[in-house]
Nucleic acid binder design. Structure first.
Length: 891
RNA sequence: GGGGGCAUAGCUCAGCUGGUUCAGAGCAUCUGCCUUACAAGCAGAGGGUCCGCGGUUCGAACCCGUGUGCCCCCACCA
């Protein structure tokens, strides 16, 4: 049978994924074994797989596959998030295309469309994850808006309301005039923009002085007399909502204004001049116009000074009737118009260019307007305390640790969480109102009726209305680690008791507060336990120029295309090659190519082994036995190293150790050592040992490259049913053999030196060479690997010599003097030069070691091991000096 | 404005308790090879003031101070 030269990933992927599924290998149910649990960070149900998901889910799959092989009951729970804002936006857009306006639909009609959309297009991302090889327990797939999870959300809301953590309040919120909803602080992106700072005069009047702002002559008169005050603002359209003017109480310029009033232009409103040390005297004119409805500071000033609140904005960002002018026009249009109109009245003193920060909606990119509205909040101050403690005392570990500081800073300054959203897609807030302004929080209208009757005896059932708003999506996803196991519905069920707390959470640092912190809060509140042990924070996937990958930039490759091109294994390796936890990954397709090449390397190692003819009559050459012993020792070392990396969640380090073990040690050295001569058979013992070693490697490889490893696993032997790599046991590290490893590294150095000699002297690898050596030490290294050196360096002989042969090329490896006899004459001077340089180096080294050992402070202060190491260095260096001197004397 | 992080080879990063003349890996580069597993490969090689300066120490890439340059997060200066 001819095995193709290159590995065909698509075939293996199509074969093994369904096979694993059919055999139920991803399925997990509670049993006697130790559980290992990961809950997926649920992607938006509207989402399509992007590079961030690839990275994130590859890591999760690596962890879960290794845990499975370690014999744990591995459970990876998948699912999707209903993503209120994003999904509603998609549905609205879809309806618009059909010519349907959301405003023409009833809530129920709209939700019908939304569910229809969700069933049809939602969750394709989960199928995409399968292409990557994600070994989730698909039977456990959950959705944050399915009935059980929604019920949990409602119950939690009611519970927290009863506990006093949830309150309803008139608050300044970040209003998204495009999305027509309040958004949380975290969903606002502040950007620096070029603005204009308008300096505008307000006329000053005495308490009882009559004045008409629209009387041009009176106005001019005031201006001429200087009876005005100048404010500075970047949002002149809000002037119509001003209800005070504020200066600093200590500002000498404004002392005469006590008891005065200012006239708001156009609307002719008489507002007080108030004094507050909130004002920065140095900024602008030192005089602030106060608009309590449209600025958080102004709102606070308003509360303090009892100011009127005039809301001049409609929800969609147009000017409201309350403003009296420009009604229905967009705020940015009005900004220009009012500036012009005020200028015409002679009220604009100057307009400066000014750079300030403006908040934009993360979802719609609209300029956020601070707006007063009635919203629901979770009071966070005390509530979040356990979550801060858990991270600070290490009960929940953040990886990498550098995020602990950020986390602490945020938790120390935590603000109340606005959880209401003016949307329809989501869990509707279980609050009920009567027409008298009373409300109650409960599950059903019937309960609400009973409850409201106590406050308002005459209330009728059909006069009770449920809150129109839904809850923030995070208010459902913060329950995820509990709700996926039905821990609210049935708090004592088998699953939740078995799988919770979960082990590792893999997610992005951007949602450390949105999601991770809140899950920890919910975990302690509802289970009395943390939701997970470790939080592995991945970096952001960026393009080669370091830009964040985004749809709008078009710089993100389609992961499925990449899988088609390089194979799922190749892409998985590519994603992990350069992404230690917390570091951004500068993605380069070349990494996937490297991953694919690695798959191919494995494939060819398999082809080589598979191609050997096995002859059980040949006795095993001792050099093969040594090679097997050496590689076994190397393998054991590597397993320990890789396990250590995994325990510290250094995933890319684990990958790199495996990569080098297979490519360098196994392929480049081991297979070359045991490879029979052309068309010669191999002895049965070596063959069997090699298969066993390869099987160990396949196990180590499997979490990273599940497809090719499973494929090769089945190709190298006939397997009984159920003997599949995915559930094979993770290798146990046996004892290492340091002295054999050391001998081999000496042998390898000698081989490399001879190859180097060929390269520099232009001696073909096909031409045999002789090698003589002598050593003051025992010489085990060469004896152990004598045949191997002969084979890999293509020697005709390798002999120990007591002489210092002349007419040779001398070199020194460790304590060995080596000589390659030459037919042509040797350039003695050049060789002498080379050796002398080496001698200089090693003598310098020796000198520094001696200095160190001669230093009493070192010997007395340093640890005993360190001193012993220095002593060993000293004797090694001395042996080497001697060897070089001997070699030199041959010249 | 507040907080945090980073600076090591051309690139991406290791360097875990300060202890080798310690300066490392992968990729990229250069040289030679179509050698009978693999050119998606083999063999070999070059490449660095560990950001600058000062200090602590027997010993510093690592600890401390300082300067410079990048990055991120948070925040209400109109």
């Amino acid at each position: 049978m001819e095995i193709p030269k290159t590995f065909n990933p698509a075939e293996a992927e199509a074969k093994w994924y369904p096979y694993w599924m059919e055999n139920g290998y991803f399925r997990s149910v509670p049993d006697e074994r130790e559980p290992y649990t990961i809950v997926i960070p649920p992607p938006n149900v509207t989402g399509v797989l992007h590079m961030g998901h690839m990275l994130n889910n590859t890591i999760q799959d690596v962890l879960i596959r290794r845990a499975r092989m370690l014999g744990k009951n591995a459970c990876w729970v998948p699912g999707t998030d209903h993503a209120s804002i994003a999904t509603e936006a998609k549905v609205v857009a879809m309806l618009r295309e059909k010519g349907i306006k959301k405003s023409d639909l009833s809530r129920d009609e709209f939700l019908n469309y939304a569910w229809e959309w969700k069933e049809k297009y939602g969750g394709i991302i989960l199928d995409q994850l399968k292409k990557l090889g994600a070994s989730c327990d698909w039977e456990r797939t959950r959705f944050t808006m399915e009935d059980d999870l929604s019920e949990a959300v409602i119950d939690v809301f009611i519970d927290l309301y009863k506990k006093g953590y949830i309150y309803r309040g008139l608050r300044m919120v970040n209003w998204d005039p495009a999305g027509l909803t309040a958004v949380s602080d975290e969903e606002v992106i502040h950007k620096e923009v070029q603005s204009k700072l308008y300096h505008v005069r307000y006329v000053l009047v005495d308490k009882d002085e009559a004045f008409d702002a629209n009387d041009r002559i009176a106005l001019q008169n005031k201006i001429d007399k200087g009876e005005t005050i100048t404010i500075a603002t970047v949002r002149p359209e809000t002037i119509l909502g001003d209800t005070a003017v504020c200066v600093h109480p200590d500002d000498p310029r404004y002392q005469h204004l006590k008891g005065k009033f200012a006239i708001i232009p156009m609307v002719n409103r008489r507002v007080p001049v108030i004094f507050d040390d909130y004002i920065t005297m140095e900024f602008g004119t030192g005089c602030l116009k106060v608009t309590p409805a449209h600025d958080i500071n102004d709102y606070n000033l308003g509360l303090k000074h009892g100011l009127e609140v005039i809301d001049t904005l409609n929800p969609n960002g147009t000017i409201s009737e309350a403003a009296g002018f420009y009604i229905g026009e967009d705020r940015f249009v009005v900004r220009k118009k009012i500036a012009k109109d005020l200028d015409a009245m002679g009220l604009v003193v100057k307009i400066e260019d000014y750079v300030n920060k403006v908040g934009f909606s993360e979802r719609t990119d609209a300029v956020i307007e601070p707006r007063l509205s009635l919203q629901w909040f979770v009071s966070m101050k005390d509530f979040s305390k356990p979550a801060l403690d858990a991270v600070m005392n290490g009960e929940v570990k953040l990886i990498p640790e550098k995020f602990i500081n950020t986390y602490k800073h945020w938790m120390d300054n935590v603000r109340d969480w606005c959880i209401s959203r003016q949307l329809w897609w989501g869990q509707r807030i279980p609050a009920w109102y009567d027409n008298q302004g009373n409300f109650t929080v409960c599950k059903t209208k019937e309960e609400a009726f009973t409850s409201l009757q106590q406050k308002n005896a005459i209330v009728k059932v059909d006069e009770i209305f449920q809150d129109e708003d839904v809850l923030d999506t995070w208010f459902s996803s913060w329950l995820w680690p509990i709700s996926v196991f039905d821990g609210f519905k049935d708090p004592n069920n088998k699953d939740i008791n078995y799988y919770y707390p979960t082990n590792d959470l893999v997610t992005a640092p951007e949602i450390l507060f949105f999601w991770v912190a809140r899950m920890i809060i919910a975990g302690y509140e509802y289970r009395g336990k943390k939701p997970f042990n470790n939080v592995y924070l991945t970096g952001i996937v960026r393009d080669k120029q370091g830009r964040k990958m985004s749809k709008s930039l078009g710089n993100s490759p389609d992961p499925l295309d990449l899988i088609g091109k390089y194979g799922a294994d190749g892409v998985r390796v590519g994603m992990l090659l350069s992404s230690p936890a917390g570091n951004d990954l500068l993605f380069d397709e070349g990494l996937c190519e490297q991953g694919r090449n690695f798959s191919n390397k494995i494939w060819n190692a398999f082809r080589l082994i598979k191609g050997w003819e096995v002859d059980d009559k040949i006795t095993q050459p001792p050099s093969n036995l040594t090679a097997i012993r050496w590689f076994t020792a190397k393998l054991n070392d590597s397993i320990m190293e890789i396990n250590d990396h995994y325990e510290k969640l250094r995933i890319s380090d684990a990958l790199m150790s495996m990569y080098k073990l297979i490519w360098d040690d196994f392929c480049a050295w081991y297979l070359e050592l045991i490879k029979p001569a052309y068309q010669q058979p191999i002895d049965a013992k070596t063959y069997e040992a090699t298969l066993q070693l390869l099987e160990q490697l396949l196990r180590i490889m499997h979490p990273f490259l599940p497809f090719i490893s499973e494929e090769v696993w089945h190709l190298i032997r006939d397997r009984k049913k159920g003997d599949d790599l995915i559930i094979a046991q993770w290798p146990q590290a046996g004892a290492s053999d340091k002295s054999l490893l050391h001998s081999f590294s000496t042998a390898a150095e000698i081989i490399t030196e001879i190859r180097n000699f060929r390269q520099t002297k232009g001696v073909s690898p096909k031409e045999t060479l002789e090698l003589k050596y002598s050593t003051a030490s025992g010489g085990d290294a060469i004896r152990d690997f004598k045949d191997s050196i002969i084979k890999l360096a293509n020697l005709s002989s390798l002999e120990e010599t007591k002489d210092k042969p002349s007419g040779t090329f001398p070199f020194v490896i460790k304590e060995f003097e080596c000589y390659i006899p030459l037919s042509e004459s040797v350039d003695k001077e050049a060789e002498k030069d080379r050796l002398e340089k080496e001698l200089d180096y090693i003598q310098g080294f020796l000198k520094s070691v001696n200095a160190k050992l001669g230093n009493e402070k070192f010997v007395s202060n340093a640890k005993a091991e360190v001193v012993a190491v220095e002593q060993k260095k000293k004797s090694d260096a001395e042996a080497r000096v001697k060897a070089i001197e001997v070699a030199l004397s041959s010249l």
